[in-house]
C-alpha cells in the first residue's frame, strides 16, 4: 500500500524510473496486490532532463518461455507439486528463452489457440524426459484451466507476473509516462490526473526484453490529462529473435519459423478519459509536439474505447475497428 505520499523533485536529474517492478525475477518473478493511491509527484517545471524516465511504470519484464504446448498430461487432476486442484502441461526445452528467470511463481499465459486468454501462477517447473526424445519442461500451475490448452496448437508464454494493481487518484506534474510495461493482469488506472506530462498513460504489453507479456483486463477510467500528451496503447518492439510488429501482435518465437499471432491485449477498457489543452508549453519537448490525444494502435480481443473527450487538443490516432 502506497498511499497519500507527496514527492517534490526540485532538480533536473535523470531519474531512475519509479517502478512497481519485478526486477528480482531470478528469485521472485511476481508482483501482486499493489495499492498505489492519492500520491502526488512533482518534477521541475519545464523539466529538460534528457532521460526523463517514467513517472510510474510496472517494470522488470523479460520472459523465460514462448512457444507451443507440447503436451497436457492432466486437467483437473492432481498436479505435480501442487497438491489437489492444479494442472500440468509440458513445454519444449528448446523454446526456453532463459532459466535466469525463475519459472516458479512466474505467470503462465495462454497467448493463442485453445484456452487463449487464461493465465495461471506456476507453482513448479522442472526438466523432464517424459516425452522420450523431446526434452521438455513440466510446468504445474495453481489452478486447472477452464479450457484446456491443446498440445501442438496452443501457444503459451512464461513471464514475470504482475497482477492486481490499483493505481488510482494520483497526480503527476511535469513528468513523463505512467504505464503498464510488460505483463499487466487485472490493473485499474482510474481517477488520476496528469499535468504537463511529456507522455501520458500507456498500456504497454508486448515482448519487452523477451518473453510474451500480455496486458489483460486493464481498465483506464476517468483519468484527466491537462496540457499533456495523451495516452497510448501499443505493443513494445524489440530486436533480436523476439519481436512483434506494432499492430498485430505478431510474435516471433526463438526458433526459426516460429511465427505466432497472439493477443497482447484482452479486456482493455479505456473509458471516460478527458484531455484538455495541448502539450505546447514545454520549452524543449512541447513546441511543435502537440498533444497526441489518444494513440491506440495495439489490437487485441475485447478492446473498448468509450467516452473519450478532447477539449482543445487533437484527437490523435484512434483507428477504426477496435
Amino acid at each position: 500500500m502506497y498511499e497519500g505520499n507527496t514527492a517534490v523533485c526540485t532538480v533536473e536529474m535523470p531519474p531512475h524510473g519509479n517502478s512497481i517492478s519485478t526486477y528480482d525475477h531470478a528469485e521472485g518473478p511476481w508482483n501482486e496486490f499493489v495499492f498505489f493511491a492519492r500520491n502526488t509527484a512533482y518534477r521541475p517545471q519545464n523539466n529538460n532532463n534528457p532521460h526523463p524516465t517514467e513517472s510510474l511504470t510496472t517494470d522488470g519484464g523479460y520472459g523465460s518461455y514462448f512457444g507451443k504446448v507440447l503436451a497436457v498430461p492432466s486437467k483437473g487432476a492432481r498436479a505435480y507439486g501442487t497438491g489437489e486442484g492444479g494442472s500440468t502441461l509440458l513445454i519444449a526445452q528448446s523454446d526456453v528463452i532463459t532459466w535466469s528467470i525463475n519459472m516458479t511463481r512466474s505467470g503462465l499465459f495462454v497467448m493463442s489457440g485453445p484456452g487463449a486468454g487464461q493465465w495461471r501462477r506456476i507453482v513448479s517447473a522442472r526438466n523432464t524426459t517424459a516425452l522420450g526424445s523431446v526434452p521438455a519442461v513440466l510446468l504445474a500451475v495453481d489452478e486447472p484451466f477452464d479450457v484446456s490448452p491443446v498440445a501442438g496448437v496452443s501457444v503459451v508464454g512464461v513471464s514475470p507476473l504482475r497482477a492486481h494493481q490499483l493505481i488510482v487518484g494520483n497526480r503527476w506534474v511535469w513528468g513523463t509516462e505512467v504505464q503498464t510495461y510488460g505483463t499487466a493482469i487485472g490493473v485499474v488506472m482510474a481517477d488520476n490526473t496528469l499535468e504537463h506530462m511529456r507522455w501520458g498513460l500507456k498500456i504497454y504489453g508486448g515482448d519487452y526484453q523477451g518473453g510474451a507479456q500480455p496486458n489483460w483486463h486493464v481498465e483506464v477510467t476517468k483519468n484527466t490529462h491537462i496540457n499533456s500528451r495523451g495516452f497510448a496503447m501499443y505493443p513494445s518492439k524489440v530486436g533480436g529473435s523476439l519481436q512483434c510488429d506494432e499492430c498485430g501482435g505478431v510474435h516471433f518465437g526463438p526458433g526459426a519459423g516460429n511465427l505466432y499471432y497472439v493477443d497482447y491485449y484482452r479486456g482493455i477498457y479505456l473509458r471516460d478519459n478527458d484531455f484538455f489543452g495541448v502539450f505546447d508549453d514545454h520549452p524543449t519537448f512541447g513546441y511543435g509536439n502537440p498533444c497526441a490525444g489518444a494513440n491506440v494502435t495495439g489490437v487485441g480481443a475485447g478492446v473498448v474505447l468509450q467516452g473519450t473527450r478532447f477539449t482543445g487538443c487533437p484527437e490523435g490516432n484512434i483507428p477504426g475497428g477496435l
Binding site: Y2, G4, T6, V11, P14, P15, S21, Y23, W30, A41
Partner: peptide, 30 residues
C-alpha cells in the same frame, strides 16, 4: 531512490512527504 521496497509483503507507505529526490519509490515486491 528514496524509498525502495524490496521483497516486502503487507508493507504500508502512507502520508509521507519527500523533498528533492528524483525517484520517489521503487517497489520491487517480488
Amino acid at each position: 531512490t528514496t524509498i525502495y521496497v524490496h521483497r516486502a509483503q503487507d508493507a504500508i507507505l502512507r502520508n509521507n512527504y519527500i523533498l528533492w529526490n528524483v525517484s520517489i519509490f521503487d517497489i520491487d515486491v517480488s
